[in-house]
Design a protein around this nucleic acid. Structure first.
Lengths: 346, 346
DNA sequence: ATGTATAATGTAAGCGCTTCCATTCAGATC
DNA sequence: GATCTGAATGGAAGCGCTTACATTATACAT
């Protein structure tokens, strides 16, 4: 392909100048006479010549290309992060490629090798809810990688990862969600989702427990169900919880790990004839595009994922070695309402 | 960065062999004595050496990197296509980078220049519902691009685009959806969404009209509302339709351009107290992950987007110049039901 | 002992750019 | 008219690999 494989030599000889001059025109340097510039430019246009960035990179030792590693793009949460990162990268003149998690922890080939060989100018890694058995592997891979390129982390970054990062403090966020619910009079508040053995102290369920303490509410093991962050998991988890509890003890508010889990919870509630928010409030997290269109529309927390992605790119390029966090805000919709003990069962 | 900027020369001199020998070890060639191979490999491991693909590319004239251009990743439909393409690319040893539409039609810089300079081995472009005023621009950009790299198209590809493509025949699909609804007794069937002036004969609304003809139903202009493919647009469009029609003439079935539009329609129906599917059936398209969790769960059409993306990559790499289409299948859920003329208004 | 095939390794010329340094040539200065 | 200056341009050495070809060493046949 690229049959018109024109090089800088072709242009130079066509015009009758040296390649150095063509290079100068190409990069808009000023020390070229207007007449020469004009002739060269015409030849470039005539031949449809585009300089090879490959060759350029070899000289300049920089590729202006970044990488990002995400668990999966099918979850809109990650798609938003990716979009934010990609757009910011482009704005700054960089290209963004997506690499799957396998690049890091399960590649038969030496992990991360492909990333290094590509001579990326930087890498963003979204570490979220790492299964405990992956933690050490991933951490090791990251340490290797950073010897070759700047690495910025996104997500729920364990404090013992000494990397620049854009990490929302999920714990603080959850804590305030609990406060939001207790202020509404809820006392039986459940939390659904998340990895059980995750060691990260900032994870969402830690905040849940802190929130309960703030409100002097007891932590009840049956109100805490672990599971993957999918709709199916949320559905099954709430199902299980309701099944194991007498009706009087059913929670009046559910905090879901994220909106996907919340979707599953809404489904289960519907199936059991529990009215939301009449008998049970449900709150999600991430504020996915579909949250307003669920029934009832889902109260959630906007975690500004696009901004997170963009900020990570900025840190990557500026080289700042900081760990920062992004604002979040509660988006009130119909799925949460004050607890009303008078209300009868429907 | 990359402080350990080791090159093939470093390894060669460390071991005391020529760079050619190191290169042979690197690429696993057999004509190296076991002893030498061992020594070289040890030096490589010791120095943590990773050959630069940049230099390799310069020689080999191939970058093993592909590009994909999508309207926007925030729409899960495109995220699925991207995921399918990305995974297949990786499986085949290629990298996949995302480029925004702007690369093609609005770049201040010469469109597509960045793509060409990067010397991609191929490009996938998702052309869907091109606004008519963009069609010529995009077509022109694509023609330029294909002179430099193989291009495969995805989506609703107009027949006058002479490119290899993976295009579902949206018209045929829609036609059968209409058949599905008429078989259920619906006669007042509306279609919501899409670009009005799109010239493509395979677009979804053409199939809608064909379907009506099949069933000997009249085409009613008021049942056809144009609009963007978003939930908001769907909401507003149905709103407008209901507002302009006497209650007796309200459609009993809505075909939405896609699931996003369908989400908006469900919302409007809910707001007007129209029960779905009791008084009005709604069918979407694309079968997004949230379709089962809407209320009522949304009947939709699975268009196998991941497979579409994967197939496009295969065409790209194999170089086959064919235009093919991917299967689709109706996924029946709760939002469509037979029309029952006896049923009273709620 | 000589010749020949085979395996192992080295040499060097690219690949298409950037960039430092050298050269040329006006025009200005004395 | 000789010298100097600075703008415009060219020469050539990389950048880090691959690879065709050349060279050397080894083994075996004659």
């Amino acid at each position: 392909m690229n049959s018109e494989n024109t090089t800088i030599y072709d242009i130079a000889s066509e015009v009758g100048v040296s390649i150095a001059t063509v290079s100068r025109v190409l990069r808009g340097e000023t020390n070229v006479s207007p007449a020469t510039r004009e002739k060269v430019q015409q030849a470039i246009d005539r031949r449809n010549y585009r300089p090879s960035s490959i060759a350029r990179w070899l000289t300049s030792k920089t590729t202006h290309s970044l990488g990002i590693i995400l668990p999966k793009l099918l979850n809109p949460h990650y798609a938003m992060i990716f979009t934010g990162a990609q757009e910011e990268a482009r704005r700054l003149g960089y290209t963004m490629s997506l690499f799957p998690w396998a690049s890091l922890d399960t590649d038969a080939y030496n992990p991360a090798t492909m990333l290094i060989e590509r001579r990326l100018d930087g890498l963003i890694v979204c570490v979220e809810y790492l299964p405990p058995d992956h933690d050490e592997l991933v951490h090791e891979a990251l340490r290797t990688l950073r010897r070759f390129m700047p690495v910025v982390l996104i997500g729920c970054v364990p404090p013992w990862y000494d990397f620049p990062a854009v990490a929302n403090n999920n714990a603080a966020m959850m804590r305030s969600i609990v406060a939001y619910l207790t202020a509404m009079g809820h006392e039986k508040i459940a939390f659904i989702g998340g990895v059980q053995e995750d060691k990260d102290p900032h994870r969402r369920d830690i905040g849940y427990e802190e929130g309960l303490q703030d409100a002097r509410l007891p932590y009840t093991a049956s109100y805490r169900v672990y599971g993957k962050g999918t709709p199916e998991a949320g559905k099954a988890a709430l199902e299980e919880m309701l099944g194991s509890l007498k009706r009087d003890y059913w929670p009046t508010a559910i905090i879901a790990l994220n909106d996907l889990v919340a979707m599953g919870c809404l489904e289960t509630a519907r199936k059991h004839g529990i009215s939301v928010p009449g008998q049970m409030s449900v709150i999600g997290c991430d504020d996915l595009f579909c949250a307003p269109y669920l029934f009832p529309s889902l109260t959630s927390v906007n975690t500004h994922q696009q901004q997170t992605g963009a900020r990570a790119v900025q840190l990557l390029i500026s080289g700042e070695q900081r760990r920062e966090s992004v604002e979040w805000e509660l988006v009130e919709r119909a799925s949460c309402a004050p607890f009303n003990s008078e209300k009868g069962e429907s």
